[in-house]
């Protein structure tokens, strides 16, 4: 694995001011993205995945949103706290972004071609005609047939899969180093999903892209990612290589997620569901966010927040404390630290 770090996020915290108080959407999140690799962020919906990545580029609505702590450096350059003007040198140019629902993420009253050309013109100062040529090339790259005709069409004239391809073309138009894909395939059906993932893979190879892939589908993670971060209630609860996460899961929540995965469980009688629901982010529990649903809950979990244990493979669970009772999960973290 290449050790060159492209993007480093440290201790990111984001909250939203709402009528009912402030929502601690992201708490103390740190991760590193290495060149040419894919980092997957997984977790239930509402756990703060989108807020995490969107706050990097200042895309969360502010107010009500507010980044309260942390740093995010793209090759050493700090992104957080930049003004809109300074951020625009990164947005779309060095960091591209793909959103879940391409239909709503594209302007309904502007042609696909214009929307892609716009970012080219803004960032590279291309002429409109040159940008048009480039759009045709880009649409070809993402395997949209008849790009000359398609670029003059509007989003509503595209199918879901084609739209997502156009969205990808838009995000890679300026040859960014980092591509953030926020649930790019969730809204698509399975065959299209596979095609899009394949496209992303080939683009990663040809462009040397570093990808942050957000998903709640462990199947996608297994296929695409080298590194995985598991989020729960605004925090990263486990983080490590894809093998660490799948074969040496060290957090009860990850175990629960795996059990709920349809592919693996298909031969079993039924899918496992994690009982209960995530905690209220208005008032995150003083202790571990997962304690109320955890099958291994201990005395201290309720009121003491666990730190991240481990080095390259990390888990936020008291079971890994030296004084904790011996538990199979603990061996996992030790095993991966050794390897």
């Amino acid at each position: 694995m290449s050790s060159e770090v492209v993007l480093a996020v440290d201790n990111l915290a984001v909250e939203f001011a709402t009528w009912g108080g402030s929502v601690q959407a992201v708490r103390d999140v740190s991760f590193k993205l290495h060149k040419g690799t894919t980092l997957a962020i997984v977790g239930e919906s509402g756990c703060g995945k989108s807020v995490t990545v969107q706050s990097l580029l200042g895309l969360i609505p502010m107010p009500p949103g507010r980044i309260t702590a942390g740093s995010a450096r793209l090759r050493g350059e700090e992104l957080l706290g930049l003004g809109a003007k300074a951020l625009n040198r990164y947005r779309g140019k060095r960091i591209g972004m793909i959103f879940q629902d391409a239909m709503s993420a594209l302007n309904p009253t502007m042609t696909i071609g214009d929307q892609i050309a716009e970012t080219l013109i803004v960032h590279t100062g291309m002429s409109a005609a040159a940008a048009r040529q480039e759009v045709i090339t880009l649409l070809g790259q993402v395997q949209i047939p008849e790009p000359e005709r398609r670029m003059r069409q509007y989003p509503f004239e595209f199918s879901g899969g084609m739209l997502q391809r156009a969205m990808i073309a838009l995000s890679i138009a300026c040859q960014p180093e980092v591509l953030i894909a926020d649930e790019p395939t969730t809204a698509l059906d399975v065959t299209i999903q596979a095609q899009i993932l394949q496209l992303l893979e080939s683009l990663q190879k040809s462009h040397g892209l570093s990808i942050i892939l957000i998903t709640h589908d462990l199947g996608v993670v297994a296929r695409m990612a080298q590194e995985v971060a598991v989020m729960y209630a605004g925090q990263i609860v486990e983080q490590g290589s894809v093998d660490d996460i799948f074969y040496r899961s060290a957090h009860p929540y990850t175990l629960g997620l795996k059990a709920a995965m349809p592919g693996k469980a298909a031969h079993k009688a039924q899918l496992q569901v994690i009982p209960g629901s995530p905690p209220d982010l208005f008032a995150p529990p003083a202790g571990c966010g997962f304690h109320a649903r955890c099958p291994h809950v201990m005395q201290l979990c309720e009121s003491n927040a666990p730190p991240l244990f481990g080095t390259t493979h990390q888990a936020r669970c008291w079971l890994h404390h030296a004084a904790a009772p011996v538990h199979p999960l603990r061996q996992q973290l030790i095993a991966s630290s050794g390897s």
Partner: peptide, 26 residues
């Protein structure tokens, strides 16, 4: 508040440009 305005911001367009060519028209 729409997603496409968020996309426009993610593309790195200036506020004025977003206002004129995306927001106002829609």
């Amino acid at each position: 508040g729409t997603d496409y305005i968020r996309t426009a911001r993610a593309k790195g367009l200036s506020t004025t440009r977003i206002f004129l060519s995306h927001q106002l028209r829609n």
